[in-house]
């Protein structure tokens, strides 16, 4: 599903976010990108979402080389991905329904079908009945759920989430992770950047540990410990 081949990313300010990074995520997997702040987790997700482009190396998603995608092809590509952010990135002057429906409006889904799918997505994240609320009328956890509902409403085969539980208390964080687990259970590939190892242990999933833009460790099963000494071992 996702393949990074010797990928490097250097930002205009000179910072090397990724150095010679190679990794693979298979279709249907649930993978956690872990590492300290600045390890390159968010950069990996930005490259997948084409918010940034790799300076060197090859990034492939669903067999498609992202380097070859032209600017006008990016919107159609992004419609195939559900993206979740730590800061939710909601439209705060629009009700929940409008926020969740946005990907469907962009795709041109008919109104009746849209209504059905928005209600279904809100139901899946436990927000049925909140369609007409403004995001600021909801708690932080609920706002994150709106972001998740927006990400899954288009039924994308790939979900990526950047620190989706960063602002949540442990119970809410676990709830959100269970949601991702449920989507993964129905075949959606999920890639989550998180530094909360305790939470990841509770949820289970393959870990890819990054350090200073390099692959530090990866494991093969979601229950086993990391296969190589982790930077977190100490």
């Amino acid at each position: 599903m996702i393949r990074f081949e010797r990928v490097a990313k250097r930002y205009p300010n000179g910072r090397e976010a990724l150095v010679d990074l190679s990794l693979t995520v298979s279709a249907g997997e649930m993978v956690f990108l872990t590492g300290h702040s600045g390890a390159g987790k968010s950069t990996v997700l930005k490259l997948i979402a084409l918010i940034d482009r790799a300076t060197r190396g090859q990034v492939e998603v669903a067999g498609q080389s992202l380097a070859k995608l032209k600017r006008h092809q990016i919107p159609a590509y992004r419609q195939q991905i559900g993206i979740i952010f730590q800061d939710h990135k909601l439209l705060y002057d629009r009700p929940v329904w409008d926020n969740v429906a946005l990907p469907l409006i962009i795709s041109g889904v008919a109104r009746k079908e849209m209504d059905k799918r928005v209600r279904s997505a809100l139901d899946q994240v436990g927000l049925a009945g909140h369609e007409h609320n403004l995001p600021l009328e909801l708690s932080t956890g609920e706002q994150q759920r709106v972001g998740i509902a927006r990400a899954v409403v288009g039924k994308p085969p790939l979900l990526i989430a950047d620190e989706p539980t960063g602002n949540l208390d442990p119970d809410l964080a676990l709830d959100i992770m269970q949601l991702f687990k449920r989507f993964n259970a129905v075949g959606v590939t999920v890639v989550i950047a998180s530094h909360d190892l305790h939470l990841i242990d509770q949820v289970g999933g393959r870990r890819i540990a990054l350090a200073s833009g390099r692959l530090a460790a990866t494991d093969t099963t979601h229950t086993s410990p990391l296969s190589t000494p982790s930077i977190y071992a100490s």
Binding site: R78, K89, L102, P103
Partner: peptide
């Protein structure tokens, strides 16, 4: 920016 992130074209 949000609209473009979720696949909105120019």
């Amino acid at each position: 920016e949000v609209t473009k992130l979720v696949g909105g074209s120019d």
